[in-house]
Design a binder for these strands. Structure first.
Lengths: 233, 233
DNA sequence: CCGCCTTTTTTGTATATACATTATCGAAAA
DNA sequence: TTTTCGATAATGTATATACAAAAAAGGCGG
């Protein structure tokens, strides 16, 4: 293990263990460079890394302080459906049940910004032949002209877009809804079945690319978010 | 703006704009140091920062490459219920409906690791006097002895724990369920109402602190996760 | 006692240098 | 042709040094 990595881990451990409380000041670079017998740049690198990781806050002249922990953000794993299913040994298929190209309405502006024509897709994800999730999607014909030619049964829209269109921003909304009659029929569940509804909007430099609404019946799917110590590096 | 910051932003912009495609190789440190007329350490700092931000991948001898965008992680905002409600002008209250101290069963080990006695709480979050969310919680009596004395109506368990117990790991699971008879009654909604169910386990250095299960009826609540360009540093 | 200026401490940035590490490429050997 | 092995090119780490910037601390005069 390298020296600046070791210094970093030393303090990471002491902070996470609570030995160094939030707000507490930690030694100056001078003191640390004497303690570890190294150059100031080395200490600096370790402390700077802790700062970008959010574990400490550094202020000129004042010193370095243990940061207050922030609960308010966690990393949410958003798996690719096809990839996740095949990884667990099941066969994934996407059946397209609707496809049309239409002009964008005023109400669509909040979903796919700046689009004038929208490719509207509807389909069902199947796992081993059984319906698994319902997908409704809008794709901006201006932002992704190639989508008009794509075969979305060979590759589901999500995977296709991921491979063909770089995006810079995304927002995901998660809520619970009951399945409507039509949705329930497509998913082969009773009407009103509680479903996890995932809505995602994606942008590229401010221009809307796609909006997708996925419906997962009840217990067939859940999302997991984790938070742990920052990865080493 | 400092030089290494400028170099970093230059490439961040070129990557996000798509000018530099994923997988594409970017100039060597030698080339950049000639281009910007600076020392290699300065270029190194910029590229290293891009690497920790996940925008580029660096391999010895091979060079630096634009990283493939990862859809698989987004930042999930996990709001503090009380804080969020009061911020939006509504009055928050927590009504404790059940509280008992009991020995941990075998089945609890997956929820609160290493706990021998568990403080089991049940209560309802209210917004402006109306039931808003149901909360069931287990707290390890060993990890958080002070919880036995706490007044959880003055400060809800979530806020109290946040203020009193530092944690190092957390995992959140989100799924959709229908409200049971008892749950529906407590929330004043019809039985079977689709609810967003948030389950969170929290650890401190491997020792389980708490497990919580929150139930939000239907459309009263949703979660939002965002992904955007890495913050400047 | 308050406000302003100077000093000093501490972090931030940049450079030149040296050596370590390691994946890749190409040449030599089997 | 295939394997092996070394040269090489690229990043990774560490050091000593210099100066800049900012903010706290202290002193000084009003």
């Amino acid at each position: 293990m390298t020296l600046h990595e070791r210094i970093r881990q030393d303090f990471e451990a002491r902070i996470l263990s609570g030995e160094l409380a939030p707000g507490e000041r930690l030694p100056t670079e001078q003191a640390l460079m004497a303690h570890y017998g190294c150059a100031r740049m080395t200490v600096n690198k370790a402390l700077s890394a802790l700062a970008v990781a959010g574990l400490v806050e550094r202020r000129k002249k004042a010193g370095s302080f243990v940061a207050r922990p922030r609960l308010h953000s966690m990393v949410l794993d958003i798996p690719d459906l096809a990839q996740q299913l095949t990884a667990s040994g099941r066969r994934h298929a996407f059946r397209l049940t609707g496809r049309r190209l239409r002009p964008a309405a005023v109400a669509d502006a909040g979903l796919v910004a700046q689009a004038r024509r929208l490719l509207q897709l509807e389909g069902v994800h199947q796992a081993d032949g059984l319906p698994f999730a319902l997908e409704q999607r809008l794709i901006s014909a201006e932002a992704v002209p190639a989508a008009l030619e794509a075969d979305f049964e060979a590759q589901p829209p999500g995977s296709w877009l991921l491979a063909h269109v770089p995006w810079t921003e995304a927002e995901t909304r998660i809520l619970a809804v009951g399945a409507s009659e039509a949705e329930a029929a497509a998913l082969a569940v009773p009407a009103g079945t509680p479903c996890l509804c995932v809505e995602r909007r994606t942008w590229r430099l401010g221009e809307g690319i796609t909006f997708v609404r996925q419906l997962f019946p009840g217990d067939s799917y859940d999302m997991v978010a984790r938070f742990g110590p920052a990865p080493r590096g």
